[in-house]
Design a protein around this nucleic acid. Structure first.
Lengths: 135, 135
DNA sequence: AATACAATGTTATATTTTATCACATGAAAA
DNA sequence: TTTTCATGTGATAAAATATAACATTGTATT
């Protein structure tokens, strides 16, 4: 998990602030929670605490409600979106693997060139200077 | 003012959250306010609301207090730091002016080149295409 | 049209949080 | 040793929140 993801999921805002930020009533916010669209954290004295992610979700909910989508529809949309980011993460992983592989190839090439160059400029470079390319 | 500056100065956090975020007691936080180190906003019902900037300041205060600096010292430090960012802003302004000036010169050069090019590739460009460089 | 349901409003009560003020305290400075 | 500084503690009032029950409104469905 990245730093910004941690920050965005940190429970910070009491419901009053969330009301202002989203222009939703407390009743609405709790209702959406009832329908499991959000799951705010709780303080040890049972007050709800919302994260930036929660607020984003609430704003999305508001938008979708305005467009006539009901709770069930929104829930579905959220789950497919979840799957979406999951797939994106997978893609990123794969991409990273590809990148690492071509790095590996790059290293081979560099090693070759280095050997070539050695023939002409013998001892102009100390081995250590380029050793970070090889392992 | 930039968007992030606006966000960082938006009053969002009630004192309870700030206590947790800074590990200061409410008494301390209000005390620092008494000494004008911070000036949190108030709701229309008189509750304090702190911004991200306020929280940064409180963390700095905490640090300085730990190092033995007193209220007066911290106040001084804050005012010189304020002057510092002010000066930095001035520098940025000047830099911008310089940039704008060289843009002006760039335009002159482009006009010249454009005239030159016209001799060879007459009518290959419509006037409108580069008119945005001239005004 | 009548009914049902979904989304939200309203009201009531209990608990928690915050504000303000006054007084206390320990450590450091004068 | 007095002051002063930074903070703690306690009391009281006001505000915010949680939960639950009931009311209202708009839309679909029959």
């Amino acid at each position: 998990m990245t730093g910004s993801e941690i920050r965005r999921s940190m429970p910070l805002f009491p419901i009053g602030i969330v009301m202002q930020l989203t222009e939703l009533t407390a009743r609405q916010i709790r209702y959406y929670e009832e329908h499991q669209l959000i799951t705010p954290a709780r303080t040890d004295t049972n007050r709800r605490l919302y994260s930036l992610n929660d607020i984003d979700k609430l704003l999305e909910i508001k938008d979708l409600i305005d467009q006539g989508v009901n709770m069930a529809g929104i829930k579905q949309l959220f789950t497919v979106k979840e799957k979406q980011v999951f797939d994106d993460d997978l893609k990123k992983q794969e991409e990273k693997v590809r990148r690492d592989l071509s790095d590996e190839e790059l290293r081979k090439l560099l090693r070759k060139e280095f050997m070539q160059a050695g023939r002409f400029t013998r001892s102009s470079l100390r081995q250590g200077d380029m050793s970070r390319f090889f392992h």
